Computed example of a mutant assay.
Amino acid sequence: MSAQTNDILQQELLSNLSRYQDRAARVFHGRGKYFEALSSLNIEWYPPYLFVQNFSESLSDDIAASLKKVFDNNLYISAIIIQTRSWPELETSILYQRSECELPIEHTAKLSDKLKSHVSLGKNRNTGVFLDMRAGWQWVEENAQDKSVLNLFSYTSIFSLFALEGGAKKVINMDMSAGALRTAQRNHNLNGISQGK
């Protein structure tokens, strides 16, 4: 990987981390192939944890060095977690950390000024939140007033949180996974917004 590519990764991360300082966000989307040399990476921010999803068999030394520079120069990052996803294998480890922590990290992440969600970093292939759905969350919140919302394949029901925050009179969450629905109930309770809706 070239020095220019390393610089691009660091610049993108720093720009997006400053934009989303206190809330969970996708801060690098390499899988969109805009940065071809970095197309094996997605990086998500669950303050104070940087969660790197690596879709190649191993993380290159150059990428690890770029991440180390970002980590060393930004004390608000507590740890960088790497999840290598070479299908069907899944391996998660802590690349850098400021103090001792163990995987999986069970964490409450801020999604917006008012909403938060439980996330699990390093336990499964998914964290409990699909951060690339942020524009959809906003749309639902802006259009849910006095509506009944059916959330099919709801997973942990993040869309329902935004619907209720936007004034939905009722939400129904449906998913095949009982575990995901338990986390969804936990998320609704965590935000204290369902009130029988």
Rank of each mutant, 00 (worst) to 15 (best):
G196V: 03
N73M: 09
T156Y: 07
F130W: 08
L150A: 07
Y34A: 13
S2Y: 00
S117P: 01
Q185I: 06
Y20Q: 03
G122W: 11
D61K: 13
L164V: 02
Y34D: 14
D7R: 12
F162D: 01
Y49C: 03
Q21V: 09
A37Y: 02
G167P: 14
K170M: 06
K169Y: 06
K197I: 03
L67E: 04
N124W: 13
A184F: 07
N73V: 05
R98V: 01
P88N: 11
V27D: 14
S157W: 05
I77G: 00
V129I: 14
V27L: 12
G166Y: 00
Q83N: 11
I80L: 06
E57T: 11
L111W: 12
D132C: 14
S39L: 02
E141S: 12
R182K: 14
G166A: 03
R26E: 12
I43L: 13
A37E: 10
Y49L: 08
S160Y: 08
T84L: 06
L152C: 13
T84P: 00
K169I: 08
R182G: 02
L111I: 09
E12V: 15
N6L: 01
S58G: 05
F71A: 05
D62A: 14
N151E: 03
D175A: 03
I63F: 01
N16F: 09
R85V: 00
Q53W: 11
A65L: 00
Y96D: 02
A79E: 02
S120T: 15
D72F: 04
L121Y: 04
G166S: 05
L13Q: 05
E91I: 08
K147P: 04
F130R: 03
I77E: 02
L152F: 11
Q83F: 06
N74P: 09
L190E: 05
V119Y: 07
V149E: 00
K114A: 14
R85I: 00
E102D: 09
E91H: 14
D132R: 10
E12K: 13
A135I: 12
V52K: 14
V171I: 15
T92Y: 07
K197L: 05
A109T: 04
S56T: 12
L121E: 06
Y76F: 13
